[in-house]
């Protein structure tokens, strides 16, 4: 078993990046979250918070509980215990808090016989928001000519771009991005990463998962490291690198995993 004492769980601290000058307020607060699937502990007493206008990366090996954590925040998975507060709303049966969340699942699946435009307008209808939409990515990806085609004729990459567009479309206060660059070419990856950074500049909070450490190094202010449903590290990215004594995040994480596994 892991001993939580081996590495200190660091509470969120002051911004480490000089660009970030804003508050320590949290957009998501998670307290003692627990969830098991048929006896298998996916989350075991997870408490953390995601700062406003910060980019937090949730990392960990497969089946560490990353998806479960994200899905409980989205209300897709019901926790056995614990409490989640998003933007001041306690997540229970209430669903209206999701108005402030933009979600990008790992892969974009849409009704095959609808056109891209119809998918977008369906979501607009559901949101019912009259606010101005953020269609920047639509142009950046040069996606407009594809919108008239039915989804089943679109390539995997195009669907993934559409997937990204949807997440940013409604200018949410919180972005939850599950492997945002997976399946995208380097150009598109660059576009999306720039977009994430720009969003943070304008005050959007971002939670993302990724397997690509360089990407996290490039983007994340904070890192939450999960292993077997427990938090092994929670703090500024640079703090993690400093604590483990590794320059690269990749090695820092590896050290964390070995430490946790032994």
């Amino acid at each position: 078993m892991t001993s939580p004492e081996r590495l200190p769980v660091v509470p969120p601290v002051a911004p480490t990046t000089p660009r970030l000058v804003t508050s320590t307020a949290a957009i998501v607060e998670v307290t003692d979250l627990g969830k098991s699937f048929g006896g298998l502990m996916a989350l075991d007493g997870v408490s953390t918070s995601f700062g406003v206008a910060r980019i937090t990366a949730v990392v960990g090996p497969n089946a560490a509980g990353k998806s479960t954590l994200i899905k409980t925040i989205l209300g897709l998975v019901r926790p056995d215990r614990g409490r989640i507060i998003v933007n001041g709303h306690v997540v229970t049966q209430d669903w209206d808090y999701r108005r402030g969340i933009g979600y990008m699942p790992q892969a974009g699946h849409f009704p095959e016989n609808l056109t891209g435009r119809e998918v977008l307008s369906m979501l607009k209808h559901l949101r019912g928001s009259s606010a101005e939409l953020d269609e920047e990515l639509l142009d950046a990806f040069a996606l407009r000519p594809e919108l008239g085609k039915q989804v089943r004729t679109l390539s995997g990459g195009t669907r993934q771009k559409l997937n990204a567009v949807i997440a940013f479309l409604f200018r949410p206060a919180l972005l939850i991005l599950d492997e945002p660059t997976a399946g995208l070419d380097p150009v598109a990856s660059g576009i999306i990463k720039d977009k994430i950074l720009r969003c943070r500049e304008s005050g959007t909070s971002v939670v993302l998962t990724s397997h690509i450490m360089s990407e996290i190094e490039e983007l994340a202010d904070s890192v939450v490291f999960l292993l077997e449903g427990r938090i092994q590290f929670d703090g500024p990215r640079l703090e993690l690198q400093r604590l483990t004594g590794h320059q690269s995040l990749e090695r820092a994480i590896a050290a964390l995993m070995q430490g946790g596994a032994s």
Partner: peptide, 13 residues
């Protein structure tokens, strides 16, 4: 439709 349902469930619905 499962994946799309997940996307819809992440909306205010």
């Amino acid at each position: 439709a499962r994946e799309f349902i997940v996307l819809l469930l992440a909306q205010p619905v």
